[in-house]
Design a protein around this nucleic acid. Structure first.
Lengths: 193, 193
DNA sequence: GCCGTAATGCAACGGTTGTTGCTTTTATCT
DNA sequence: AGATAAAAGCAACAACCGTTGCATTACGGC
């Protein structure tokens, strides 16, 4: 067939479909992201549609459908990368101090209504395989515990008694979340150790 | 106006618009509920629509729209009352024993994929005012602590270190949830007291 | 058993959504 | 700079969704 001939002729079977991330694509990505964030804050995660996002972003709906395929997929991606996984983390040499700074940052992050709304939306799709918008947070927890010389506590304990209460309150009891929450949970966590 | 005349004539202004809960209505309610549960398990909470539910339930879509108005509202109601608030609760006279039984029940409940999916869906709408599908659970926690003679722990601690970790794992780490989870958390919780 | 009316069913509609084939733009590589 | 093809725009289309007015059923109170 034609493909065989072509394969024989070509030096390399063109197995490098170069992605385009810069320029216009980046602009579309950015404006779609902020459109989603605005709309989700304004109307709640359940009442946002793709055409609405497209209009707000000044972008054609087809661009969104072709890039993400799905509204849940799009929202989930935004929820996952809202808190930059590449950002600098506390590195004081003291586990408790590091976790304190880290927990405070998370509380502060999710105190913003936009981020709380995104988390709730992300929760809806969290069941399916690897679409978990909090996996970066757990990787960070693991990092802190793993590099400590004398951990005292386990990763599971950090998840259960620090991350979980914060996330639970963000989703279900947002009004009870304040700056003291992180410190209180840290105190509880290390009281046991 | 006519209304004034009517009001003067009538002995009681008919201020009792009797609801109809039995017979057909009950049947519709039941079949809609199981249709939602089936579909949410099959396709995930985000890919279910009202017409789909109506067809599966053998009910007219308008009935659903008029009764609940909204898909999120419907799903949220089901998520809220899936675990019967009137069910008997442990009442051993011992706080730790009661909480243990209660926590085991919750873990077992949410180990079923249907209930986990409903919880995720409920999380998406949890921000808005009083549409919180876990409020009954928190009321129960309060009951246990309030009636204990020497509580040892606070309601907030039950929320943060027992309820929150279970719910977090149900939503984001369903595979890590097993029968030992409840006991482990209870142990952690009372270790401090 | 009868009556009033709450609740469901039915049908038609206007608007929206998501898909598809094609054209235009433009990011990336040489 | 020029060539290539990835990504975005455009237009048209067939679903589908949710609303509304009216007819039908049958629950609940007498």
């Amino acid at each position: 067939m034609e493909t065989q001939l072509a394969a024989a002729t070509m030096p390399v079977p063109a197995a490098s479909p170069t992605k385009r991330t810069g320029g216009r694509s980046a602009l579309v990505l950015a404006s779609v992201r902020s459109a989603v964030e605005e709309l989700i804050k304004e109307r709640g995660p359940e009442r946002v549609t793709v055409p609405m996002i497209a209009e707000r972003a000044g972008v054609n709906p087809t661009s969104i459908y072709r890039r993400w395929g799905d509204l849940p997929t799009l929202i989930n991606e935004i929820a996952t990368y809202r808190l930059d996984p590449e950002r600098p983390l506390p590195e004081s040499g003291n586990l408790r101090a590091d976790l304190t700074g880290w927990a405070r940052e998370i509380v502060q992050h999710y105190s913003k209504p936009v981020n709380a709304a995104l988390l709730r939306a992300g929760a809806a799709t969290a069941g399916e395989s690897e679409s978990d918008c909090l996996r970066n947070r757990r990787a960070e927890a693991r990092l802190f515990v793993d590099r400590a010389v004398n951990p005292v506590i386990t990763v599971d304990q950090v998840i259960d008694h620090l991350v979980a209460p914060i996330i639970y309150r963000v989703i279900f009891l947002p009004l009870t979340l304040d700056d003291s929450t992180a410190d209180r949970l840290i105190a509880d966590l290390f009281a046991r150790a």
